[in-house]
């Protein structure tokens, strides 16, 4: 099914999303990848607060290429989500509601998704030029010394994603493959 989603995503909307749904996201989303996650986790270890409002947030795992003059961002496709698996359950328990990336997630992350009624979306890996067209504004909000790995806030319009793991823990990477597997 096709769905349109506005951020922040409501709990009702999340429960209506099913693994395999094709969705278009509009609204503000955060961008963070490996180094930013490591830093956020260290901040929490030290009892400090996070640099972003994590409650009901959507994080896109991405590190863009530099923007040409007059453009908000360069190429901007998803990075492999499993590298964030170590940090994701803690953020989900703090209120993170949606993650956008590509590739498999660990059982710990899937459990945290179900426990917190959250969702994991995949964007098409390697379609960074196409996806960049849906990004209307981009602003580095913290950790700017990390360059391509800084935390950003984006405003996206009709950003295309697919529900891979829904709030009940159904996992498209497993179910869809079964359908076409012949050996």
């Amino acid at each position: 099914m096709e769905q349109r989603i506005n951020t922040p995503i409501t709990s009702d909307k999340i429960s209506s999303l099913k693994s395999g749904d094709y969705c278009y996201i509009t609204g503000e989303i955060f961008v963070a990848r490996d180094a930013a996650h490591k830093r956020m986790s260290e901040a929490l270890d030290k009892g400090q607060s996070l640099p972003i409002e994590i409650e009901n947030a959507c994080i896109y795992y991405m590190g863009p290429s530099p923007a040409r003059e007059g453009r908000p961002i360069g190429s901007a496709g998803p990075t492999t989500a499993s590298r964030m698996d170590k940090y994701a359950p803690r953020l989900l328990d703090l209120g993170l509601k949606a993650m956008i990336g590509k590739g498999k997630r660990s059982q710990e992350v899937i459990d945290a998704i179900v426990r917190n009624k959250a969702v994991y979306f995949a964007a098409v890996g390697g379609a960074g030029a196409l996806l960049s067209k849906c990004i209307k504004t981009s602003e580095v909000i913290t950790y700017d010394d990390l360059g391509a790995e800084a935390i950003r806030k984006l405003y996206v319009e009709d950003f295309p994603v697919i529900v891979v793991i829904d709030s009940q823990g159904n996992n498209l990477y497993e179910t869809a493959i079964e359908k076409y597997k012949k050996i």
Partner: peptide, 18 residues
């Protein structure tokens, strides 16, 4: 989408992948 992505990369000088 991948075909379209290649097209956009070429015409608008955006790297195919970030």
């Amino acid at each position: 989408q991948l075909q379209e992505n290649l097209d956009i990369a070429d015409k608008e000088k955006i790297p195919i992948c970030q």
